[in-house]
Design a protein around this nucleic acid. Structure first.
Lengths: 157, 157
DNA sequence: GCCGAGAAGGTTATAACGTAACGTTTTAGC
DNA sequence: GCTAAAACGTTACGTTATAACCTTCTCGGC
Protein backbone atom coordinates (compact mmCIF):
# COMPACT_ATOMS: atom_id res chain seq x y z
CA UNK A 1 0.00 0.00 0.00
CA UNK A 2 1.35 3.33 -0.98
CA UNK A 3 1.77 5.78 1.82
CA UNK A 4 0.12 9.03 1.01
CA UNK A 5 2.61 11.88 1.33
CA UNK A 6 1.79 14.63 3.84
CA UNK A 7 0.00 17.31 1.94
CA UNK A 8 -1.02 20.89 2.60
CA UNK A 9 -4.63 21.24 3.77
CA UNK A 10 -6.91 21.33 0.78
CA UNK A 11 -10.45 22.73 0.88
CA UNK A 12 -13.10 20.38 -0.47
CA UNK A 13 -13.90 22.95 -3.12
CA UNK A 14 -10.48 22.58 -4.72
CA UNK A 15 -10.32 18.88 -4.23
CA UNK A 16 -13.63 18.48 -6.00
CA UNK A 17 -12.55 20.77 -8.78
CA UNK A 18 -9.37 18.81 -9.32
CA UNK A 19 -11.19 15.51 -9.31
CA UNK A 20 -13.74 16.83 -11.76
CA UNK A 21 -11.17 18.15 -14.17
CA UNK A 22 -9.28 14.91 -14.19
CA UNK A 23 -12.38 12.81 -14.59
CA UNK A 24 -13.48 14.88 -17.60
CA UNK A 25 -10.27 14.10 -19.36
CA UNK A 26 -9.69 10.58 -18.16
CA UNK A 27 -6.57 11.71 -16.29
CA UNK A 28 -5.45 10.30 -12.97
CA UNK A 29 -5.30 12.54 -9.95
CA UNK A 30 -2.63 10.91 -7.82
CA UNK A 31 -1.65 11.88 -4.28
CA UNK A 32 1.67 13.28 -5.52
CA UNK A 33 -0.08 15.49 -8.04
CA UNK A 34 -2.63 16.60 -5.53
CA UNK A 35 0.10 17.41 -3.02
CA UNK A 36 1.68 19.85 -5.48
CA UNK A 37 -1.67 21.45 -6.18
CA UNK A 38 -2.47 21.72 -2.47
CA UNK A 39 0.92 23.30 -1.80
CA UNK A 40 0.27 25.95 -4.41
CA UNK A 41 -3.15 26.69 -2.97
CA UNK A 42 -1.66 27.03 0.50
CA UNK A 43 0.18 30.16 -0.59
CA UNK A 44 -1.34 33.36 -1.78
CA UNK A 45 1.21 34.13 -4.43
CA UNK A 46 2.81 32.45 -7.43
CA UNK A 47 5.62 30.07 -6.60
CA UNK A 48 8.63 29.07 -8.63
CA UNK A 49 9.21 25.40 -9.30
CA UNK A 50 12.15 25.39 -6.94
CA UNK A 51 10.24 27.16 -4.19
CA UNK A 52 7.67 24.40 -4.52
CA UNK A 53 10.36 21.76 -4.29
CA UNK A 54 11.62 23.32 -1.08
CA UNK A 55 8.16 23.55 0.43
CA UNK A 56 7.29 19.99 -0.50
CA UNK A 57 10.59 18.64 0.79
CA UNK A 58 10.02 20.35 4.08
CA UNK A 59 6.48 19.08 4.37
CA UNK A 60 7.26 15.55 3.31
CA UNK A 61 10.68 15.35 4.98
CA UNK A 62 12.36 13.85 1.93
CA UNK A 63 14.28 14.81 -1.16
CA UNK A 64 12.30 15.64 -4.27
CA UNK A 65 13.92 15.91 -7.68
CA UNK A 66 13.13 18.91 -9.87
CA UNK A 67 11.86 16.67 -12.64
CA UNK A 68 9.21 15.24 -10.36
CA UNK A 69 7.74 18.64 -9.62
CA UNK A 70 8.02 19.75 -13.24
CA UNK A 71 6.07 16.70 -14.32
CA UNK A 72 3.35 17.39 -11.79
CA UNK A 73 3.24 21.02 -12.90
CA UNK A 74 2.96 19.97 -16.55
CA UNK A 75 0.11 17.71 -15.59
CA UNK A 76 -1.70 20.39 -13.61
CA UNK A 77 -1.34 22.82 -16.49
CA UNK A 78 -2.55 20.20 -18.96
CA UNK A 79 -5.79 19.72 -17.05
CA UNK A 80 -6.19 23.46 -16.59
CA UNK A 81 -5.74 23.71 -12.83
CA UNK A 82 -2.57 25.73 -12.95
CA UNK A 83 -1.07 28.57 -14.98
CA UNK A 84 2.54 29.36 -15.70
CA UNK A 85 3.61 32.98 -15.54
CA UNK A 86 6.29 33.49 -18.17
CA UNK A 87 7.42 36.85 -16.87
CA UNK A 88 8.43 35.56 -13.48
CA UNK A 89 8.97 31.84 -14.07
CA UNK A 90 6.36 31.01 -11.51
CA UNK A 91 3.22 28.94 -11.29
CA UNK A 92 -0.15 29.64 -9.74
CA UNK A 93 -3.48 27.85 -9.41
CA UNK A 94 -6.20 28.93 -11.82
CA UNK A 95 -8.55 31.48 -10.29
CA UNK A 96 -11.36 31.00 -12.78
CA UNK A 97 -11.80 27.34 -12.49
CA UNK A 98 -15.30 27.06 -13.85
CA UNK A 99 -14.22 26.48 -17.41
CA UNK A 100 -11.27 26.29 -19.73
CA UNK A 101 -10.25 29.63 -21.10
CA UNK A 102 -7.46 31.91 -22.11
CA UNK A 103 -6.31 34.11 -19.29
CA UNK A 104 -4.55 37.40 -18.95
CA UNK A 105 -2.57 38.38 -15.91
CA UNK A 106 -1.85 41.56 -14.02
CA UNK A 107 1.30 41.08 -11.96
CA UNK A 108 2.02 43.53 -9.16
CA UNK A 109 5.75 44.09 -8.87
CA UNK A 110 5.28 45.59 -5.41
CA UNK A 111 3.25 43.00 -3.49
CA UNK A 112 3.63 40.02 -5.80
CA UNK A 113 -0.10 39.45 -6.12
CA UNK A 114 -1.40 38.38 -9.50
CA UNK A 115 -4.85 39.18 -10.79
CA UNK A 116 -6.18 36.71 -13.31
CA UNK A 117 -8.38 38.47 -15.82
CA UNK A 118 -10.57 36.99 -18.48
CA UNK A 119 -11.45 39.45 -21.19
CA UNK A 120 -13.35 38.01 -24.10
CA UNK A 121 -12.86 41.33 -25.86
CA UNK A 122 -9.14 40.87 -25.70
CA UNK A 123 -9.36 37.30 -26.87
CA UNK A 124 -11.48 38.35 -29.80
CA UNK A 125 -9.13 41.14 -30.75
CA UNK A 126 -6.13 38.84 -30.57
CA UNK A 127 -7.92 36.30 -32.72
CA UNK A 128 -8.62 39.01 -35.31
CA UNK A 129 -5.04 40.21 -35.34
CA UNK A 130 -3.86 36.67 -35.90
CA UNK A 131 -6.38 35.79 -38.58
CA UNK A 132 -5.68 38.96 -40.56
CA UNK A 133 -2.17 37.62 -40.95
CA UNK A 134 -3.15 34.03 -41.64
CA UNK A 135 -1.69 33.07 -38.29
CA UNK A 136 -3.18 30.11 -36.47
CA UNK A 137 -2.81 30.70 -32.72
CA UNK A 138 -2.01 27.90 -30.41
CA UNK A 139 -1.11 29.49 -27.12
CA UNK A 140 -1.35 33.08 -25.98
CA UNK A 141 0.60 34.85 -23.27
CA UNK A 142 -0.69 38.17 -21.95
CA UNK A 143 1.08 39.43 -18.86
CA UNK A 144 1.02 43.00 -17.63
CA UNK A 145 3.53 43.91 -14.96
CA UNK A 146 2.93 47.03 -12.89
CA UNK A 147 1.54 48.23 -9.59
CA UNK A 148 -1.82 47.00 -8.38
CA UNK A 149 -4.55 49.27 -7.05
CA UNK A 150 -3.89 48.42 -3.44
CA UNK A 151 -0.18 49.13 -3.65
CA UNK A 152 -0.70 52.28 -5.70
CA UNK A 153 -3.03 53.63 -3.00
CA UNK A 154 -0.76 52.86 -0.08
CA UNK A 155 2.16 54.35 -2.01
CA UNK A 156 0.91 57.89 -1.42
CA UNK A 157 3.56 58.95 1.10
CA UNK B 1 43.61 53.00 -28.67
CA UNK B 2 40.91 50.43 -28.31
CA UNK B 3 40.76 47.91 -31.08
CA UNK B 4 37.27 47.68 -32.46
CA UNK B 5 36.08 44.08 -32.29
CA UNK B 6 35.14 42.43 -35.59
CA UNK B 7 31.46 42.97 -36.05
CA UNK B 8 28.80 41.60 -38.38
CA UNK B 9 28.12 43.85 -41.36
CA UNK B 10 25.64 46.53 -40.37
CA UNK B 11 23.59 48.48 -42.88
CA UNK B 12 23.81 52.25 -42.49
CA UNK B 13 20.10 52.31 -41.78
CA UNK B 14 20.50 50.38 -38.58
CA UNK B 15 23.68 52.09 -37.57
CA UNK B 16 21.97 55.46 -37.90
CA UNK B 17 18.97 54.26 -35.99
CA UNK B 18 21.12 53.01 -33.16
CA UNK B 19 23.11 56.22 -33.01
CA UNK B 20 19.94 58.28 -33.03
CA UNK B 21 18.34 56.31 -30.23
CA UNK B 22 21.37 56.60 -28.03
CA UNK B 23 21.85 60.29 -28.73
CA UNK B 24 18.22 60.97 -27.77
CA UNK B 25 18.80 59.45 -24.38
CA UNK B 26 22.35 60.51 -23.74
CA UNK B 27 23.47 56.87 -23.84
CA UNK B 28 26.78 55.72 -25.25
CA UNK B 29 26.78 53.45 -28.24
CA UNK B 30 30.05 51.57 -27.83
CA UNK B 31 31.61 49.15 -30.33
CA UNK B 32 30.83 46.21 -28.08
CA UNK B 33 27.17 47.17 -27.86
CA UNK B 34 27.00 47.78 -31.57
CA UNK B 35 28.62 44.40 -32.23
CA UNK B 36 25.84 42.63 -30.34
CA UNK B 37 23.20 44.59 -32.19
CA UNK B 38 24.86 43.88 -35.55
CA UNK B 39 25.06 40.19 -34.76
CA UNK B 40 21.35 40.07 -34.03
CA UNK B 41 20.55 41.88 -37.27
CA UNK B 42 22.71 39.43 -39.21
CA UNK B 43 20.26 36.62 -38.44
CA UNK B 44 16.66 36.45 -39.47
CA UNK B 45 15.36 34.91 -36.32
CA UNK B 46 15.42 35.52 -32.59
CA UNK B 47 18.57 34.36 -30.85
CA UNK B 48 19.11 33.20 -27.30
CA UNK B 49 21.72 34.98 -25.23
CA UNK B 50 23.96 31.93 -25.40
CA UNK B 51 23.59 31.57 -29.15
CA UNK B 52 24.65 35.17 -29.35
CA UNK B 53 27.66 34.48 -27.16
CA UNK B 54 28.70 31.62 -29.45
CA UNK B 55 28.33 33.72 -32.58
CA UNK B 56 30.25 36.62 -31.12
CA UNK B 57 33.01 34.37 -29.81
CA UNK B 58 33.41 32.85 -33.25
CA UNK B 59 33.46 36.19 -34.97
CA UNK B 60 35.81 37.83 -32.49
CA UNK B 61 37.96 34.76 -31.83
CA UNK B 62 37.86 35.20 -28.08
CA UNK B 63 35.96 34.17 -25.00
CA UNK B 64 32.95 36.25 -23.99
CA UNK B 65 31.31 35.92 -20.62
CA UNK B 66 27.52 35.63 -20.38
CA UNK B 67 27.30 38.69 -18.19
CA UNK B 68 28.87 40.82 -20.89
CA UNK B 69 26.25 39.89 -23.44
CA UNK B 70 23.43 40.18 -20.93
CA UNK B 71 24.55 43.70 -20.11
CA UNK B 72 24.63 44.64 -23.77
CA UNK B 73 21.19 43.14 -24.24
CA UNK B 74 19.85 45.07 -21.27
CA UNK B 75 21.25 48.22 -22.76
CA UNK B 76 19.79 47.55 -26.20
CA UNK B 77 16.40 46.85 -24.66
CA UNK B 78 16.64 50.00 -22.56
CA UNK B 79 17.12 52.18 -25.61
CA UNK B 80 14.40 50.32 -27.48
CA UNK B 81 16.46 48.64 -30.18
CA UNK B 82 15.82 45.10 -29.05
CA UNK B 83 12.94 43.04 -27.67
CA UNK B 84 13.03 40.04 -25.40
CA UNK B 85 10.65 37.19 -26.18
CA UNK B 86 9.57 35.71 -22.87
CA UNK B 87 8.07 32.60 -24.38
CA UNK B 88 11.30 31.41 -25.94
CA UNK B 89 13.96 33.23 -23.92
CA UNK B 90 15.28 34.85 -27.05
CA UNK B 91 16.06 38.34 -28.24
CA UNK B 92 15.38 40.08 -31.51
CA UNK B 93 15.91 43.54 -32.97
CA UNK B 94 12.91 45.82 -33.03
CA UNK B 95 11.13 45.77 -36.37
CA UNK B 96 9.21 49.00 -35.91
CA UNK B 97 12.06 51.26 -35.13
CA UNK B 98 10.44 54.56 -35.96
CA UNK B 99 9.19 55.19 -32.44
CA UNK B 100 8.90 53.77 -29.00
CA UNK B 101 5.89 51.58 -28.54
CA UNK B 102 4.43 48.50 -27.00
CA UNK B 103 4.66 45.49 -29.25
CA UNK B 104 2.88 42.23 -29.65
CA UNK B 105 4.45 39.17 -31.17
CA UNK B 106 3.27 36.27 -33.28
CA UNK B 107 5.77 33.42 -32.92
CA UNK B 108 5.68 30.63 -35.47
CA UNK B 109 6.54 27.35 -33.82
CA UNK B 110 7.18 25.78 -37.21
CA UNK B 111 9.65 28.12 -38.92
CA UNK B 112 10.75 30.19 -35.95
CA UNK B 113 9.88 33.50 -37.59
CA UNK B 114 8.42 36.18 -35.38
CA UNK B 115 6.02 38.84 -36.59
CA UNK B 116 6.11 42.03 -34.58
CA UNK B 117 2.67 43.59 -34.51
CA UNK B 118 1.66 46.95 -33.23
CA UNK B 119 -2.04 47.18 -32.49
CA UNK B 120 -3.14 50.39 -30.87
CA UNK B 121 -6.53 48.79 -30.37
CA UNK B 122 -4.97 46.11 -28.25
CA UNK B 123 -2.91 48.61 -26.29
CA UNK B 124 -6.02 50.64 -25.60
CA UNK B 125 -7.98 47.63 -24.49
CA UNK B 126 -5.20 46.49 -22.18
CA UNK B 127 -4.98 49.97 -20.72
CA UNK B 128 -8.73 49.90 -20.05
CA UNK B 129 -8.57 46.51 -18.40
CA UNK B 130 -5.79 47.73 -16.15
CA UNK B 131 -7.38 51.04 -15.25
CA UNK B 132 -10.72 49.41 -14.39
CA UNK B 133 -8.81 47.60 -11.69
CA UNK B 134 -6.74 50.53 -10.54
CA UNK B 135 -3.69 48.81 -11.94
CA UNK B 136 -0.84 50.99 -13.20
CA UNK B 137 0.90 49.10 -16.02
CA UNK B 138 4.60 49.22 -16.42
CA UNK B 139 5.48 46.56 -18.92
CA UNK B 140 3.26 44.43 -21.10
CA UNK B 141 3.99 41.07 -22.67
CA UNK B 142 1.77 39.81 -25.47
CA UNK B 143 3.08 36.75 -27.25
CA UNK B 144 1.01 34.45 -29.41
CA UNK B 145 2.57 31.15 -30.35
CA UNK B 146 1.16 29.24 -33.30
CA UNK B 147 1.66 28.57 -36.99
CA UNK B 148 2.27 31.46 -39.37
CA UNK B 149 0.44 31.89 -42.67
CA UNK B 150 3.33 30.66 -44.76
CA UNK B 151 3.80 27.49 -42.78
CA UNK B 152 0.06 26.85 -42.56
CA UNK B 153 -0.18 27.04 -46.36
CA UNK B 154 2.75 24.75 -47.06
CA UNK B 155 1.42 22.30 -44.49
CA UNK B 156 -1.36 21.16 -46.83
CA UNK B 157 0.08 17.77 -47.71
C1' DG C 1 47.99 67.30 -21.09
C1' DC C 2 46.19 65.36 -16.93
C1' DC C 3 43.19 64.12 -13.39
C1' DG C 4 39.02 62.59 -11.05
C1' DA C 5 34.35 60.64 -11.28
C1' DG C 6 31.37 57.65 -13.21
C1' DA C 7 30.13 54.57 -16.93
C1' DA C 8 31.37 50.52 -19.29
C1' DG C 9 33.65 46.23 -19.64
C1' DG C 10 35.96 41.94 -17.93
C1' DT C 11 36.59 37.69 -14.76
C1' DT C 12 35.23 34.18 -11.81
C1' DA C 13 31.92 31.88 -9.63
C1' DT C 14 27.35 30.54 -8.71
C1' DA C 15 22.25 30.72 -8.61
C1' DA C 16 17.98 29.63 -10.90
C1' DC C 17 15.35 27.20 -14.29
C1' DG C 18 14.49 23.12 -16.93
C1' DT C 19 15.22 18.42 -19.35
C1' DA C 20 17.36 13.65 -20.98
C1' DA C 21 17.87 8.93 -20.29
C1' DC C 22 16.74 5.06 -17.94
C1' DG C 23 14.90 1.98 -14.59
C1' DT C 24 11.16 0.88 -11.00
C1' DT C 25 6.53 1.08 -9.14
C1' DT C 26 1.69 1.55 -9.49
C1' DT C 27 -2.69 1.19 -11.71
C1' DA C 28 -6.44 -0.26 -14.73
C1' DG C 29 -8.37 -3.78 -17.36
C1' DC C 30 -8.65 -8.46 -18.23
C1' DG D 1 -2.68 -12.92 -10.86
C1' DC D 2 -1.04 -11.03 -15.44
C1' DT D 3 -0.01 -7.53 -18.69
C1' DA D 4 0.40 -2.98 -20.76
C1' DA D 5 0.56 1.64 -19.96
C1' DA D 6 0.93 5.42 -16.98
C1' DA D 7 3.19 7.45 -13.20
C1' DC D 8 7.18 7.98 -10.40
C1' DG D 9 12.10 8.16 -8.94
C1' DT D 10 17.20 8.86 -9.62
C1' DT D 11 21.26 10.56 -11.64
C1' DA D 12 23.14 13.51 -14.45
C1' DC D 13 23.23 17.33 -17.36
C1' DG D 14 21.98 21.54 -20.23
C1' DT D 15 20.35 26.23 -20.42
C1' DT D 16 19.38 30.83 -18.68
C1' DA D 17 20.68 34.55 -15.70
C1' DT D 18 22.99 37.11 -11.91
C1' DA D 19 26.44 38.35 -7.85
C1' DA D 20 30.65 40.30 -6.40
C1' DC D 21 34.56 42.42 -7.52
C1' DC D 22 38.09 44.64 -10.15
C1' DT D 23 40.00 47.05 -14.37
C1' DT D 24 39.54 50.03 -18.29
C1' DC D 25 37.65 53.67 -20.79
C1' DT D 26 35.48 58.23 -21.52
C1' DC D 27 34.08 62.75 -20.57
C1' DG D 28 34.45 67.11 -18.49
C1' DG D 29 37.05 70.48 -15.79
C1' DC D 30 41.38 72.33 -14.85
Amino acid sequence: MARRPPSAPLAAKWQNLAEGRCAERGERLTPARLAVYAEMLAHDRPLSAYELIGLLEERQKRKIAPLTVYRHLDFLMRVGLVHRLQSTHTYMPCDHPDHTHESQFLLCSSCGQVDEVESTGLETLLAEIASERGFRPDNTVVEVTGVCGTCATSEQT
